[in-house]
Simulated scan of single mutants.
Amino acid sequence: MSTSSEQMSVSPDAMSASPSPSPPPRPSTDGRQLPSIPSSVPYNAGPPSAAKGNSLSNNNRGSNGYGPFFQEYSLLAEYNQLHQQKIPGLYVMPCAKTPLVWSGLLFIRQGLYQGGAFRFTLTIPDNYPDGDCPKFVFEYPVFHPLIHPETGEVDIKRAFPRWRKNVNHLWQVFLYVKKIFYKLEVKSPSNPEAATLYDQEMEMFKNRVSDSLKEAKDRLLQPPNLEDPFALRFSPWNEAVHPDTRRQMINSSQKRGQGHWRQSSDAGSANPSDLGLSWMEAGQTKIFSRDDASSA
C-alpha cells in the first residue's frame, strides 16, 4: 500500500470515533442461486497434485458432466421409458448393487420360439450414456442364428452400429432382442449352424429350437447365475400358496361381467395387463388363457 505516514498515525480517540466499516454488499440473487452446470471434465480428472486417495477423483462413472448422480438419474429415466413402452412378455429389474446391470426374463408367445422363457442380463457401459452399446446376454445360449452358441450374447451392434446419446435408448435394445425371435435373419450370423439349418433343414432347425426351449424352461427353477436379490426366481406350483395369491390379484382389481373386463369401484384400469396382471393355464403359453376370474 502507498499510504503516507501522516495517514497512518491516527490517535486512538480518532479510531474509536470513526464508523465501523460497512459489510460487503449482498449479491443481487439474495442467496437463491442454482448450482453451476457441471463442466465437461470427467470425475477422475484433477490437478496433478490431487491426492491419490481422493474418492471423488477416482470415481469415473461417465464424462461430460455425467458423474455418479447424473448417471443414475439418466438410467432412472431410461427405466421409466421402458415402463411406458409396455413391451409384452418382458420383465426386467435393475440390480441391487449397481444400476449398470439389469436382469430379467423374456417370454416369447408366438412363432417358432413360442413358449420360450429366457433369462438375460443387460450390462451398461461404465461411461453411459457416452459409451458404446450395452451388452445383452442370455443366461442359457438359445439356439438362434443371432445368438452366440457358447456365450449367449446377442450382437446388439447389428442394430446399433454406433450408440448415439439421446437418440438411442435402452428400451429399443429390448425391443430389438424380442423382434429377432419373430423375424429371423441369417446374414452374418453369430451361430452359423443355426443359420444353415434354418435355410436348408427347417424340420431339424425346429427340433433344435424345441430342445433349446425345453432346456431354458427347466433352468428357470434353478437359482439365477447372477447373485442379486432382485433377480427373478421361480418355484414349482404350490397348492397351498399360489391359488390364493392368484385369486387375490384378480379379485382385488377386476370384476368379470357380460363377457368383458370392467372396472370395479377401486380399479385403476379396465385392462388386466395395465395392472401388471398375467396368468396362464398350466402347460399353455397363451397370455390370459384363464379369463374367468370368478373361478380362478
Rank of each mutant, 00 (worst) to 15 (best):
Y43W: 13
Y43E: 13
Y43T: 15
A45T: 08
G46P: 04
G46E: 04
G46Y: 04
P47H: 04
P47G: 03
P48V: 06
S49D: 09
S49C: 08
A50M: 09
A51G: 11
A51I: 10
K52D: 12
N54M: 07
S55K: 14
S57M: 12
N58S: 15
N58D: 09
N60A: 14
N60P: 04
R61Q: 12
R61E: 10
G62N: 06
S63F: 08
S63D: 10
N64S: 11
G65L: 09
Y66R: 03
G67Y: 15
P68A: 14
P68C: 10
Q71N: 10
Q71W: 06
S74F: 09
A77E: 13
E78P: 03
E78S: 09
Q81V: 04
Q81A: 13
L82R: 03
L82E: 04
H83Y: 10
H83L: 15
Q85R: 15
P88A: 14
G89C: 08
G89E: 07
V92W: 00
M93A: 12
C95D: 06
C95E: 03
A96M: 08
K97Q: 15
K97V: 11
P99L: 14
L100G: 03
L100C: 09
W102G: 00
S103C: 13
S103P: 03
G104L: 06
L105K: 08
F107H: 13
R109N: 14
Q110I: 11
G111V: 07
G111K: 07
L112W: 06
G115D: 13
G116P: 07
G116H: 07
A117E: 15
F118N: 02
R119E: 09
F120R: 01
T121H: 01
T121F: 00
L122E: 02
I124F: 05
I124M: 06
P125L: 05
D126I: 10
D126G: 10
Y128N: 00
D130C: 14
G131Q: 03
G131E: 03
G131T: 02
F136N: 00
F136D: 00
